[in-house]
């Protein structure tokens, strides 16, 4: 009991989480983003997202860990389109994390909002609580038409029906980079060593990923850009994704 209390005290001590080496952060420059959806396919390939079929797509049962939202501004002929890639924001104060009764989702020491598929019982509360609607539920067990399953990434598990899933910031790539760093006797991975699939593919280099605990990291500098903002700031979720707003010339 006393160790439990001690631990609790430790957790609630300010700066407890600062002792860790990483806080993975992403910046997305909407002035560069063209809405081409390369990231969407990259994610689908990397993370074994299912092909759901037209019928299920029509029922909004698609699974896209990253999606592009589009918003019109104005009316013809003075009309503009704004694209915004929407993926798990890995909020520091994530509403989904308090929702799960079985701790299938929690905040890890790298600042990631993680989802443990094996632990999930599928109450879907996290998806209701998520203001960004980036959590996707496996309404069915999806299968791949043979031989499409040969493409499946062996580093990422395939999910079964009844399980919630979402963007992991490509945690498998983070894992590999950390292993490499450990093999090389480095304490931290180098800036740019971890590149999630979406960031890697982005043709306009709108996305940037890195460790914001490292003040020298590109992402830390980009976050301070005056155009930076977080989506739905008024909800106080403190997302780990900083968007850089488009410049209107």
């Amino acid at each position: 009991m006393s160790t439990f209390v001690e631990k609790l005290r430790q957790y609630s001590k300010p700066g407890y989480y600062d002792e860790f080496d990483y806080h993975w952060t992403m910046t997305i420059d909407l002035d560069r983003c063209t809405g081409c959806e390369a990231c969407v396919v990259a994610c689908q390939a990397e993370n074994n997202l299912p092909i759901v079929g037209e019928e299920r797509f029509a029922q909004s049962r698609e699974i896209k860990w990253i999606r592009i939202e589009r918003y019109w501004e104005g009316e013809y002929p003075n009309i503009k389109m704004g694209f915004i890639p929407m993926l798990c924001q890995h909020c520091d104060d994530a509403p989904c994390e308090t929702a799960c009764p079985v701790y299938a989702t929690y905040h890890n020491q790298d600042g990631l909002n993680t989802q443990i598929y094996n632990r999930c019982i599928g109450t879907r509360t996290c998806a209701v609580y998520c203001p960004y609607e980036v959590r996707y539920f496996n309404w069915f067990t999806y299968t791949w038409d043979e031989p499409l399953e040969q493409q499946l990434n062996p580093d990422v598990s395939v999910r079964e029906k009844g399980v919630m899933e979402k963007c992991t910031f490509c945690i498998q790539r983070i894992r590999i980079a950390k292993d490499n760093a450990k093999d090389d006797d480095r304490r931290r991975v180098r800036d740019g060593e971890v590149v999630p699939a979406c960031v890697q593919s982005c043709p306009t280099e709108a996305m940037l990923f890195g460790n914001s605990k490292d003040p020298e990291a590109k992402v830390s500098k980009m976050m301070k850009n005056t155009r930076g903002y977080t989506v739905l700031k008024d909800l106080n979720t403190t997302p780990s994704i900083v968007y850089l707003k488009k410049v209107h010339a």
Binding site: S60, A127, F137, F140, K161
Partner: peptide, 14 residues
């Protein structure tokens, strides 16, 4: 089949 047998979807998971 999975909970997909019901009418819920990505936007309305409950």
């Amino acid at each position: 089949v999975g909970v997909g047998a019901a009418g819920m979807n990505h936007n309305a998971v409950w």
